[in-house]
Design a protein around this nucleic acid. Structure first.
Lengths: 191, 191, 191, 191
DNA sequence: CATGAATGAGTCTTCATTCAT
DNA sequence: GATGAATGAAGACTCATTCAT
């Protein structure tokens, strides 16, 4: 029996992300993805149940990857502002190393299709340390009394949007922009 | 009696926005839109060059409408924080009165198709008062030295996202949420 | 506005029946039918909702046509055996003039897809005279006390099967075969 | 423990017949059959040359099985009418014990694909006793001078159709129906 | 012998758009 | 100006079959 080829699955995922970034989910047809991934359209269906399933699986994968990158080096003992800043920089670093994945994630962040993905068990577990770090900040009276969604909305979302916009013009963030955005985000969430 | 021309155009626009909100741009086919608007598919082409043109025109229209609503009552003589707060409340008020248009605008805010729409001449003009109000705030040393995009990113974007999410669950903003978000946004942009 | 073209619908129906006869329902793909009918595949969908709807509509049409042919000349005052023989001959005559339609009907006579077609209102009405003729035969103590389905099963079904088989070999019924089959059918149903 | 080869072939045949009965020949895809039979799609090709070959082999198999059942107990010395009746009852008995096989056979009785199967050598041999029994009936001047096909058409076909129809509604034949149909069939073929 | 992976060809259907009236 | 008919191209997906193990 022929062996399942993990490389093939990766190639398909990469092709899909690339195409979805450039022409959108509906524009990225199965046959186009197949062509880019250098497989037959039918082959895609041996790795994913259908197009929507593919999107979902890729989204969860990228989201998990990003979460892990974000939390790299985060330590309960870290000073709150320093920890927050670390994550802020990690986000930027990740986006620069994985710009395609990053753009892909951004595109679907607010898509109804993936709305309930957050309830993915594994993903929840990965995010746990972030949550407790924030909680600590609130207990120390350093951060405002807000749920984690708000942290995302003011700390991560604006910078993500900017990165995405720069990417569209094939530009990169300047040091100045990073500093400004961190300052604004920090002011928004700190007490 | 056959409806007059302008009514027909409005009916098409409304149908398109409704459908795009519920099934996405690609899901909202010309013939479906035509059916909802009670016209022939061919008729749509007497009002718009093609589907993409339709999206663009509707987007600009809504964006302008929103900009006008936002600036309603804004006066150069107004205290900076009060002016900012006024716009913040106007945004919410608009979204509650025009939830379909609002959701439509949000859906395409980050779509490459409409990326260059900001350069629409008329739109630029409408936004002018906002710009000069912000400039005043900076001159008065009340606001941070940031371009207008950042104001949007911290003051309008997070609340818009929340409204959209609430809308998806058919909920509404609470007074508490509004206050919190204004506080965070204001802290982000003020000096 | 372009006029609906009845010829086109007929061409599609004819092509469909022809193809279904020679390669079966599943073998007769929409695109093959379109090619034979000399229209675009999409055009078929302006005349029929979908493939199944097409089959059903064609089946009802043919069935009605056949029923009308069968009852041609049937008169309540006719002698029972003569009336039965008239229908028997009409069936053969119809099959010889409309062999494609006839074969098509036969193919689907027992197909679950069209099982409930008999309940088609119009069809029911068309068949009414046949029913009352049979009833008369039973009242006159000439025919066995059986429901109309049995009449079909012994009088019409065997001859239809034979016609179909002959058609497959491009042959025709002989006078002898006709006589024999009428005799057998008549003996089966008469008292 | 892996099932033995012959079991596997039987499992495939059973799965195929089942599926073909419920979704038709084209609806019963090789991979679906494989799933039901609990084998790999490729395995099916070690037992059958291709899908059509599978249908044919299964059809001949069932047909032979039925023929054997039909002739069980038939004896040259038997009274003609009794012998005919015996076969009639055997047909019913077989159909009730092997409803899936029976329905399968019926479905393809008139399919062009299997048209020439009757010329299968073995099958011919099995049917021989039936033929000579009929010949005897003709010689005794009890049966009409008709070929064996006509016996089938009037004696076996109508009852088969009724069984099939009942099966579709998950009903069974009543004693009354059996008697009536035998009477009609017998009247049709007897002199 | 048995298998799951792989695939090109094909399925039905819908699409944005144009044509003829 | 307005329309329904018409269409070639494309959509997601499944198929019978073969291949490599």
């Amino acid at each position: 029996m022929r062996q399942s080829d993990e490389n093939k699955k990766i190639a398909i995922g990469k092709a899909a992300i690339q195409l979805i970034n450039s022409v959108g989910f509906d524009g990225a047809s199965i046959s186009k993805i197949a062509k880019v991934a250098n497989v037959s359209p039918a082959t895609i269906y041996t790795y994913f149940e259908n197009k929507e399933d593919m999107l979902l699986k890729l989204y969860v994968m990228v989201k998990k990857e990003l979460a892990i990158a974000l939390l790299q080096g985060l330590d309960e003992s870290l000073d709150i502002k320093k920890g927050i800043h670390l994550m802020f920089e990690s986000l930027i670093a990740y986006s620069e190393k994985n710009i395609e994945s990053f753009a892909f994630k951004e595109q679907f962040a607010n898509c109804p299709l993936v709305a309930n993905v957050c309830e993915d068990e594994e993903l929840r577990a990965v995010i746990e340390p972030l949550k407790s770090f924030i909680e600590k900040g609130k207990r120390q009276n350093i951060l405002k009394e807000v749920s984690i969604e708000y942290i995302g909305a003011y700390l991560f979302h604006p910078i993500s949007t900017l990165i995405k916009r720069k990417y569209a013009h094939q530009e990169k963030l300047t040091e100045e922009e990073k500093n400004l955005m961190f300052a604004m985000g920090w002011d928004a969430i700190r007490k």
